[in-house]
Design a protein around this nucleic acid. Sequence first.
DNA 1: GATGAATGAGGATTCATTCAT
DNA 2: AATGAATGAATCCTCATTCAT
Lengths: 219, 219, 219, 219
Amino acid sequence: MPVAPAIPLAAGSRRKGERTAERILDAAEALFAERGFDGATLRDVADRVGLRIPSLYNHFASKDSLYAAVLERGIGPVLEVLGEFVDARDTDSRDSGRVVERVMALLARRPNLPRLVLHEMLSGGQRLTPVLRGWIAPAFARAHEMVEATPGARRWEREQVPLLVLAVFHAVVGYFAIAPLYRELNGIDLLADSSLERQTRLMREIVAALFRLDAASEP
Amino acid sequence: MPVAPAIPLAAGSRRKGERTAERILDAAEALFAERGFDGATLRDVADRVGLRIPSLYNHFASKDSLYAAVLERGIGPVLEVLGEFVDARDTDSRDSGRVVERVMALLARRPNLPRLVLHEMLSGGQRLTPVLRGWIAPAFARAHEMVEATPGARRWEREQVPLLVLAVFHAVVGYFAIAPLYRELNGIDLLADSSLERQTRLMREIVAALFRLDAASEP
Amino acid sequence: MPVAPAIPLAAGSRRKGERTAERILDAAEALFAERGFDGATLRDVADRVGLRIPSLYNHFASKDSLYAAVLERGIGPVLEVLGEFVDARDTDSRDSGRVVERVMALLARRPNLPRLVLHEMLSGGQRLTPVLRGWIAPAFARAHEMVEATPGARRWEREQVPLLVLAVFHAVVGYFAIAPLYRELNGIDLLADSSLERQTRLMREIVAALFRLDAASEP
Amino acid sequence: MPVAPAIPLAAGSRRKGERTAERILDAAEALFAERGFDGATLRDVADRVGLRIPSLYNHFASKDSLYAAVLERGIGPVLEVLGEFVDARDTDSRDSGRVVERVMALLARRPNLPRLVLHEMLSGGQRLTPVLRGWIAPAFARAHEMVEATPGARRWEREQVPLLVLAVFHAVVGYFAIAPLYRELNGIDLLADSSLERQTRLMREIVAALFRLDAASEP
DNA sequence: GATGAATGAGGATTCATTCAT
DNA sequence: AATGAATGAATCCTCATTCAT
């Protein structure tokens, strides 16, 4: 058993246990993203962390709860950004371009996340934590109202708006998810800075068009 | 090998074995779409068809080859449509709106397919038949050239074009893939005719914008 | 099982069915010899004959009975030769050298047989037909008496005689059984004529020594 | 990995895991010997050890590797004895009689080994570890040279020497392999001390004749 | 906190056999 | 006589989980 450190650790450092849990989460995130819940095995996770399988149970109660932890850790910050945007009361503080940039930046740092989300979506959200499930529908509703309230956006039919939001969502999420395959087939790394920049701009433009107050103001 | 039947079979009728194989493919398609390759079990497939597991092996050599068969059967028609479009020599015969409609109609009849494709994409295309792998890169290259050759499309930057194609791809595929979850969360069935119509129109417009000969004609 | 033919067939000609049964026996013999009863599968047999598995059942009632048929067909002729020798009443008609030669010639033509016998021996003779089981013990007893009755052989201790017979048996059978491995490891084909000749001579000498009436009379 | 014990373990005592592995090896050895690789099942092994099948995988990675371990553990000591003999430089230290005795004693204590070897031989040595495969050919070559270098042995033809070595090998190995069947058919236990003694003497004599320095001393 | 060992449940696959055609 | 299809039984193996150490 490791002896407890006599002196408190400097700020920023974490206890070994916490660091281990974090490393497990990292490994699990990558594996769940690559192979989905069923395809990823605890053996793979343990191997990647350099532990034996039973040790994982010192940090997480089960494979399910490990998965939930991965999901919450990953989705949390994104939901926060989106939440801020959606909850902004005055129209001025809603800078759609900035939201796109922040989300793209978040996902660029955690490119596993979109794949995780897609897996979840494909499985029908079976494993979504209640908290996460609870978030989605209201947020979607709010986004809908919001877009509707935007004058310029009226050029879209009422019923087409959610489809547009969906389309943007899929374009963003799919971009990250296809990166590995795209690289293999076309030799281009979508996660490289230049690609990310371009995609961010593209998404900004599309979202801008969606929320555009005045279509004429577009170059 | 079965002896050739003396009398030609009535249209639509098939030898029993073939019908069984088809039913297996149907069941497998649904299950692979729902749960991915690892999550779907042969037991599930067999149960759904009303057979015992070993009987599946009278029709497919392995789970892998069953999966490959599902994929090829499903993707084939779509590739055909896309291929026709991409290979069309004269610009006039390239009716982007029509392609969108045909593809959407195909996917509407096989809504499992997009989920299958997404699963495949997420797994890095590990199980793509060589024939399918071989199709993708060239087709993508052709599509790229094509878009570039379209005068009006020049309003997009050269490097942005593939990203746009990707975005459209993800918007279409994601639409079908999210349908079950969307229905559960929002109570709206994206596979209903009205929704499909709207989405088709939306995709038509977006693709039209992408390939528009004359950008000025846009409102 | 095929009905016995009402009319004796013309020499050399066989009904197709019989030829098929024979071909099955040939394939099965080789496979049982190579891989033993458990290791050989009906699929292998069928493949080698160019039939489907169920067709085998038109000729043999089960895998067990196919094995028994292979065994009896193979061992029969050898038992005959040995039986003649053992049953010979007058000592003069017992030409040990000739027996060795005949047996070696038989085995050379059916090199699978010794391997079959060894497999059987290793499995404790579980699958020996009652008829075969019944043959062995008495034959062995007779051989024993016989050797004992041979005056010159008395130079061996009484109890050593069966061990000598066993040793000769194993030397002969093992020779054929090891041929494939020997060839692979040493590049020498024990089934080639020259090797067979030498081995036959060696066995003759050893057997002769065993039954030698007068050791001095030997060159 | 287990921490090294502070105090050396008492002789004969082992860590629990090692003892279990040993028991698995024992059970597997017996079963592989009786039924060959294909005929022996992990269920049988597990039952005999008093474990469930999956537990076996905590000690051996696969059925194949279990088989390999059984083979190496068993053959090792025999190869050592033979190796010493073959590698002995001065003729004086080569006591053929002593080798025979040591090998017979070894096999008497592990009567499964010869059956294992025979199974391996019959299957063409498919599963021989590379290390074992590598041993055989050179050892055989050395033995050959050795016999040839022995003056008295020249009474055998050059080409007959390897056949003699083979014959001795088969006589020894077959003796142990046939023991169970022999007992069943003739009621005599070849593994009983008296039988073993006799067989050892017999083999000694035969080997002595093979390596005899002075052919003239022969009666 | 870490791990060796054990295990119930289940997964893909093979095999001998049967039966209708 | 031949075979496509179906299947019960069994095989090897994997996985998530538990527990004593």
